[in-house]
Amino acid sequence: MANVLVVTSGKGGVGKTTSSAAIGTGLALRGHKTVIVDFDVGLRNLDLIMGCERRVVYDFVNVINNEATLSQALIKDKRLDNLYVLAASQTRDKDALTLEGVGKVIEELKQNFEYVVCDSPAGIEKGAHLAMYFADEAIIVTNPEVSSVRDSDRMLGLLASKSRRAENGEEPIKEHLLLTRYNPERVTKGEMLGVEDVEEILAIRLLGVIPESQAVLKASNQGVPVILDEQSDAGQAYSDSVDRLLGKEMPHRFLDVKKKGFLQRLFGGSE
């Protein structure tokens, strides 16, 4: 059975696209045929993060409008055989995506893939609604910061009431919390909400904690999903999260302040 996974948050800039790229790639690395779909109409970015921006010919809206077939629009990843990207349209027409059109494309993707990862736009309006509507599972990307946590809670309310599963009275969407841009040092100093705080407020299962990391910018500069940077803290944290998503028990790492090396202590500076 194909699994439709939405990566959503309410708030913008919290790490949805970074996480969609990392988790989609992680699923493919573990042998699952996966497609990552960019729902951010007008602000296409997943292609850049995945490093396939120059190979976009047709997009999501072209498929909905029957201007291209799905197989023409799907972009095959250069690194992994079983990983594909469906790019968002750069049109400024907000109504380019329709519930019916999206439903048709998702249905067709489910015939061909094990995982359909939907990278949601920010907000709680139409685009975000369409991205989550057909989902079986949701990854709520949250930063340890008041407005992000509040918006995540709003999004949880919408998942529980405005999704297809909710409307049909089916089993509810399975929700996962992904806490990103976490800074253990600031948490220790009492300047930032801790994992337990956010878990307590949102009361959903914790999928993972991704530390604030320089590896993320570096990976996006190069068009390589950060999970492929196996040496990096963020890459490893995403890797653990994908394992948990697939049901493996993994201890949480990177929650504590890194012990500084001797030289770093001597000369200061941050890594």
Binding site: E145, V146, V149, R150, D153, R154, G157, S161, V187, K189, G190, E191, M192, L193, G194, D197, E200, I201, L202
Partner: peptide, 22 residues
């Protein structure tokens, strides 16, 4: 009180309120 615990308190109140509203 440190600022993180103020944040937590404020969030608990507003989130409970908004869940009630919806």
């Amino acid at each position: 009180q440190n600022s993180a615990s103020i944040a937590k308190e404020r969030l608990q109140i507003i989130v409970a309120h908004e869940r009630g509203l919806h």
